[in-house]
């Protein structure tokens, strides 16, 4: 009759399920029964759901192969060490954080941010890259190495030398005066200029001709004496952070291996 007037709405799945499980209150159950009596579609839906329920209940019951009853209580739980109790992500996160801090510190060091304020941050690389034609004045206690560094005074004709009091010479004369360019390095290491008459090295190659011992002394003196050098504290901190990052990574790997084993 309800179909004739087009007012019938099929029962929802949830209502059908609750009706099947006898969980509907009285008024809702009576209304559902009236709908089921009038609608074949709802009836079929209910029958299929009931078949699913009964099949699940009958067919899927498994019997355990053995009894789980104990003859003695189990031993008390052994509390795992903190190393094993911490989750993997804590180690991975700590290693990532340490790596990030290390990257920031190395970047800041390279940019000179870690140098004390008010002092020029001159890196070792810039010192090494300085062409020998420029004058580097190193202040500090006199030492043989310091003398060596001081001896790297340029014979740049444009700048001249204040100590020698020589007047500046024209720039065009620089390439044509190899003796003047080579002269300051003569006391550090004098390249053998044999009687074979080999061509004198170019001014840019003079520094590479210097012996490694002399270069090391120059760098050491620079590090010790220049006021703009990076403090040892930051270097030590960078090292510590790097060690921490590696340590966390190692702990993560060890923990994974231990848990897997």
């Amino acid at each position: 009759m309800l179909h004739l007037f087009g007012r019938h709405r099929h029962l929802s799945q949830q209502v059908l399920n609750e009706y099947l499980d006898k969980r509907l209150p009285d008024f809702a159950r009576q209304r559902a029964e009236r709908a089921l009596a009038a609608c074949a579609v709802c009836n079929q839906e209910l029958a299929s759901l009931a078949a699913v329920t009964s099949m699940l209940r009958q067919a899927l019951h498994a019997t355990p192969r053995r009894s789980f009853i104990w003859t003695a209580p189990p031993p008390p739980a052994v509390r795992a060490s903190l190393f094993l109790r911490l989750p993997n992500w804590s180690y991975a996160g700590a290693a990532s954080l340490a790596g990030l801090v290390l990257a920031v510190m190395v970047s800041a060091d390279a940019m000179g941010i870690l140098s004390p304020p008010g002092q020029a941050a001159v890196g070792r690389e810039s010192f090494m890259a300085t062409p020998p034609s420029q004058e580097l004045t190193v202040q500090g206690t006199p030492s043989p190495a310091g003398d060596t560094a001081r001896s790297m005074k340029s014979a740049d004709p444009a700048s001249g030398s204040a100590e020698s009091g020589q007047p500046p010479q024209p720039a065009a004369a620089a390439p044509t005066a190899p003796d003047a360019t080579r002269a300051p390095f003569a006391d550090v290491a004098s390249p053998p200029s044999g009687p074979s008459g080999a061509a004198p090295p170019l001014p840019g190659a003079e520094l590479t001709a210097v012996s490694t011992e002399g270069a090391a002394e120059v760098i050491a003196t620079y590090d010790a004496e220049l006021p703009g050098a990076t403090p040892v504290f930051w270097r030590a901190l960078e090292g510590a952070v790097a060690v921490a990052a590696l340590g966390f990574l190692l702990a993560l790997l060890l923990r994974r291996r231990r848990v897997r084993g």
């Binding site: 899927l60 019951h61 498994a62 019997t63 355990p64 009894s67 789980f68 009853i69 104990w70 209580p73």
Partner: peptide, 19 residues
């Protein structure tokens, strides 16, 4: 008695775990 608890619930527990 914990063995009584095991005896009562081992079958439903095994069924649930099995499925």
């Amino acid at each position: 008695c914990y063995n009584c608890i095991i005896e009562s619930f081992q079958s439903p527990a095994y069924n649930l775990a099995r499925r």
